[in-house]
Write a protein that binds this DNA or RNA. Structure first.
Lengths: 101, 101
DNA sequence: TACTTCAATTACGAAAAGTAAGTAGCTTAC
DNA sequence: GTAAGCTACTTACTTTTCGTAATTGAAGTA
């Protein structure tokens, strides 16, 4: 990949928000903590990729993973403060889609 | 791909804005009409993909293509009204990146 | 004719995404 | 006690997209 004069923070933000499924996963989690299967059902994403994305988002400090040792096991994902801070971004996209699509 | 209960407009918007390079191309064009080489130089994107993305954005009515038959040829790309309406989205991402990255 | 510039386009290997089947841990059913 | 079910992944494999580099085409210039 070539060099760029682009602001690296913006660039990084675009990589995150722009990565496939990321924004939609955050959009789902804005409704509150949700478990793996719930997210998987709410989006046309495969378990394989959802697992991958959640790990990335956890690593970025955007999503938190909580395991409840019930039967059967329950794993809930929720937004951290950093994750919630993306609400405005997602809402703007939502607004735009209502006006223009 | 599976079925989804997701709003199709939001879904479409995410596909657009979320597609790699799309938001960054729009970000560049917010500064005014620019020619192919200028966009290519401002981003770490290859000509192959830039060409592909610009065609998609033109098809979506977000970007306009203007050819000037000068020597050498000049092709300028600019945002349509629909394209400009994405400014808020891009600015929100920019703001977020400043605060959190 | 050979050479230059710009805006693409093509060819091809590499990376990411999509699909589907399998795994692991624990419980209830038979 | 083993078979079946539930949940949350994981693995194996195919298809699509991306990245790099070389090439094309049009139009003028040396």
């Amino acid at each position: 990949m070539k060099e760029t004069a682009l602001c690296p923070r913006l660039s990084k933000a675009m990589e995150l928000v722009g990565k496939r499924w990321t924004a939609l996963i955050i959009y789902q989690l804005l409704e509150g903590p949700q478990r793996f299967n719930a997210i998987e059902s709410s989006l046309p994403i495969s378990g394989r990729l959802l697992s991958e994305r959640l790990k990335e988002l956890e690593k970025e400090g955007i999503v938190e993973r909580n395991v409840f040792s019930e039967v059967p096991i329950r794993v809930e994902y929720s937004l951290t403060e950093k994750g919630h801070s993306l609400e405005q971004v997602v809402r703007e996209i939502e607004e735009w889609s209502k006006k223009w699509l």
